[in-house]
Design a protein around this nucleic acid. Structure first.
Length: 174
DNA sequence: ATGTCGATTCCCT
DNA sequence: GGGAATCGACATA
């Protein structure tokens, strides 16, 4: 859930990738640096970084000091679609599939659609909600069927089956 | 100080 | 499916 001045956006996480601490593709693999240090925080912390012109959001999963996280790759926006489209600067590409599929079907796109910037790096996604400008994780609505596949866009540990998508969901990145 | 390289996206063929 | 854009973090010197 994301609350900002313009309103509230709710979304369901439909696609993720895992980056375990002992995985060569994990940013924390070669130790702590200025860029990845929030990955070593406790589970539930946001790890936000820039790549090219985009921003990516990860949720730290390991205990403090471990350095592992899950990258959010796609969202199904369930509330505040108009605001999300505005943040993405898309005119009216905002309904149900297949039109709204392009709204948050990528790591950078979902951050833009939710108004997430590097200022959220280190933010506690499970903590007490603030009054505004908040980003937080909420419990899932129910059990879902999960598909497993290979991660996208990386050059190391290419064949590790660590990409997870909600089966049959049309909002995944591909 | 300088060079390399993306956990991406968009546009083109 | 392929390549360019583009910039900060990181490694090397």
């Amino acid at each position: 859930m994301r609350t900002l001045e313009g309103g509230t956006i709710r979304a369901r996480i439909v696609e993720t990738e895992a980056y375990p601490h002992d995985d060569p593709a994990c940013h924390a693999f070669s130790g702590r640096t200025e860029r990845n240090h929030t990955m070593f925080e406790k589970a539930g912390t946001a790890y936000v970084y820039r790549i090219h012109r985009s921003v990516c959001l990860n949720v730290v999963t390991g205990p403090a000091g471990r350095g592992e996280a899950v990258l959010l790759r796609a969202l199904e926006i369930t509330q505040g679609i108009e605001l999300a489209a505005e943040l993405r600067r898309l005119a009216s590409v905002a309904k149900l599939p297949p039109e709204g599929r392009q709204l948050a079907n990528g790591p950078g796109k979902l951050c833009q659609a939710m108004g997430i910037d590097p200022a959220f790096d280190g933010h506690d996604l499970l903590g007490v909600p603030k009054r505004d400008n908040e980003l937080r994780l909420e419990p899932a609505d129910g059990p879902v069927r999960i598909d497993t596949s290979v991660r996208i866009g990386i050059s190391r540990a290419v064949s590790a089956p660590l990409r997870f998508t909600i089966a049959g969901n049309s909002y995944v990145s591909r």
